[in-house]
Amino acid sequence: MLDTKSNERRLTVARAMAESIAQEMRVDDRVFVMGEDIGDLGGVFGNTRGLVEEFGKDRIRDTPISETAFISAAVGAAMDGMRPVVELMFVDFFGVCFDAIYNLMAKNIYFSGGQSSVPMVLMTSTGGGYSDAGQHSQCLYGSFAHLPGMKVVSPSNAYDAKGLMTAAMRDDSPVIYMYHKGLQGMGWLGTEPGANVNTPESDYTVEIGKAKVLREGTDVTLVGLAMGVHNALKAADNLAEQGVSAEVIDLVSLVPLDRETVINSVAKTGRLIVVDEDYNSYGVSGEIITTVCEHDISKLKAAPKRVTYPDVPIPFARNMEQFCLPNADKIVAAYKDM
């Protein structure tokens, strides 16, 4: 999946997202984009760059700084036959507008008994590592995935970013599309080069709800998503040098969650480490470990481990933030501790 051949069409995640949206907007008049600074600026994280030039300000619609209004407006528009893509600039901002998300967007299909569909995509940036402190650096994967009624995806690379966005825009249910800032290919944020991969120009979808085995191995299963995948791949390289064969799984989607791929992998390796930049407790890491334990605990040769963000607000100072963030060394250390 993480193709690095130099002759191929490598895109950044930001460009892949914008390309997907543009292609879908060309064939589906119902698709439009709303959010803060997604027009002339092209999105703070580059994922709507070029769209306003092609589609104009009506369909690429800069909004007031008013998340409750425009996210709940997207719900109303989606129920009326449109297919809005809205942006919550930083996932941390969900605190000002969560009713629109979890009480309206996520519940109107159910409360209507399936009469209505809510075909909308809420894209939002996640992740830290660049000293933006605790109101602009969180992941909050577990907070969204916990609540029923919305699909939740998070790509680790440009290929998946494009295919997931296309799949999300074609889904009749709401999809939370969480993109990690450190994977966007925005130089000013610092970026993970492994996210820029071969991305076909033609449109395609990546299935929502299907995990990917990015690297096969026999001794330990490393499970992650978004930035966690890259940390896991680096850890797997490091472990390989020490003669340990690690399998790396990219969850790609949290809701629906592909439990089977994780279960099958751990059945083979007998060891599980979950890598998650979200807070340690009550989150994705706990869900993955529980999935394996509930299915067949006897497959585990050692107690599972998690490499996660500690249960503290994210600090500003570089040294303190880096101390808290998951990284490849912590994954290797976790393996050695098993």
Binding site: A73, V75, A77, M82, D99, L104
Partner: peptide
């Protein structure tokens, strides 16, 4: 919506939908 004032945004969105279409 059973939540106070939360029908206002969706009404705007439905109105926007009609306007755009």
């Amino acid at each position: 919506s059973g939540i106070i004032a939360q029908g206002c945004g969706p009404a705007c969105g439905a109105a926007l939908s009609r306007k755009m279409q």
